[in-house]
Design a protein around this nucleic acid. Structure first.
Lengths: 87, 87
DNA sequence: TTAACATTTGAACACTTGTTCATGTATTAA
DNA sequence: TTAATACATGAACAAGTGTTCAAATGTTAA
């Protein structure tokens, strides 16, 4: 449980998830979008995969990553509301 | 957002929140319940307070901590379900 | 088959985080 | 007022985390 939340406790990982919420993407595309190196993105995708938050399919020589569980968006909205109360 | 999730990314903080979900507690009681030092609990309560997850009221020379936002329990349940899918 | 491309992997490093320990502050009982 | 209690705080340290860089792997185009 704590481990799962911990994975969501990083801004770059949220950037990756947000990008994937819009559309499936290759690693290099993700890297460009979120402004990280390919390698850093790859490392983080591994972490996200570890919590079954993303998965990939192979397309030619690319790996196209996709959001595995859209529940995460619900989670995002709920926490947003919680945080709005903090003003 | 990431910061909020990061705060939930620690097992000891969840232990504290879980204990407070049952009943309001003083720092020393919390420390006993979760098996941490008073000081460690105090440090973590500060972190939780920073995200408006707990608050306290003074009672005599004690501080009685209480869950400030029970939404957190909903969050817990939702993530539990997500994690159950990972089998 | 070979070269180029896309991504992963592992080691190294700086940075962050959580705990302990010693000390400080606030509150009440004596 | 003083001593004791309850808790907070800050510094210090170990352990954990995220990034970079170099090298390895897998895939396709030439």
């Amino acid at each position: 449980m704590a481990q799962f939340f911990g994975v969501l406790g990083d801004a770059n990982r949220w950037r990756i998830l947000s990008a994937l919420a819009v559309q499936d993407l290759r690693v290099s595309e993700l890297a460009d979008l979120v402004g990280m190196s390919d390698s850093a993105v790859s490392h983080q995708l591994r972490v996200l995969k570890g919590q079954h938050l993303v998965r990939y399919r192979r397309e030619g020589r690319y790996r196209v990553y996709t959001l595995k569980d859209h529940h995460i968006l619900t989670l995002y909205r709920e926490v947003s509301e919680h945080l709005d109360e903090d003003l």
